[in-house]
Amino acid sequence: MSEIHEGGCLCRSVRYRAIGPALRTLVCHCRFCQKMTGSTSYAETMYPVDAVEFIGRLSIYRHYSETSAKPVHVHFCPTCGTTVTLTFERWPEYRAISRGTFDDPDWIPIDAHIWTESAQSGVVLPASTDCFRQARIKLDGTPEVAERFGAPVFAKRDA
């Protein structure tokens, strides 16, 4: 039997089923994610794009990444405005599901924090978790080196 995780938007007009194992869960602290959520960060669980089935209609907002200049598509409920998922021109094979929209958002641990150089003051990065000053992978496809801390630390250590 396949692993299935369900979720949806705040008003329940949009529901989804994510089938199979998730690839990873990240917390992104970039300015785009801060603006998109109106908060300090965006927690996203990555799946293969075809592993998620939707019931209900999603609206789409296209944003151009400041780093890659490629579109990031924000898929949101047209009724309540909940961001349910993101898709990426840079990585067309992946879909990010907003972790907070899962019926049980705690089912999967957070693997890494990305774009920590943009984190807001007061944000604490956890111990023993991969943290990346920018993205996990450079534009040329090479991996970045993660920072790991022995104890929780403030993201803005120089302030």
Score class of each variant (00 low, 15 high):
Thr82Asp: 07
Cys30Trp: 02
Ala22Val: 11
Glu89Asn: 10
Leu23Pro: 10
Pro152Leu: 08
Arg17Leu: 14
Pro109Lys: 11
Arg95Ala: 07
Cys11Asp: 00
Ala135Asp: 12
Val145Pro: 08
Val14Arg: 00
Arg17Val: 12
Arg24Trp: 13
Ser98Ile: 05
Ala96Asn: 05
Asp103Gly: 04
Lys156Leu: 06
Asp140Gly: 03
Asp106Gly: 14
His113Pro: 02
Arg31Ala: 12
Ile19Pro: 09
Leu26Ile: 12
Leu10Asp: 00
Val14Pro: 01
Asp111Cys: 06
Met46Cys: 10
Lys156Tyr: 09
Phe88Met: 09
Lys70Thr: 05
Arg15Trp: 02
Ser59Ile: 08
Asp106Lys: 14
Ser98Phe: 03
Gly20Asp: 06
Trp115Pro: 01
Asp103Ala: 13
Lys70Trp: 08
Ser13Val: 02
Asp104Ala: 04
Lys138Arg: 15
Ser13Gln: 11
Trp91Glu: 14
Ala112Asp: 04
Leu26Asp: 04
Leu139Thr: 13
Tyr94Asn: 09
Glu93Asp: 14
Leu23Arg: 12
Asp130Thr: 08
Pro105Glu: 04
Val84Phe: 05
Lys70Phe: 09
Cys9Lys: 02
Leu86His: 08
Val49Pro: 10
Phe32Gln: 09
Ala22Trp: 03
His113Gln: 09
Thr116Ala: 10
Ser118Glu: 13
Arg157Trp: 05
Ala127Thr: 09
Val49Thr: 11
Gly141Trp: 13
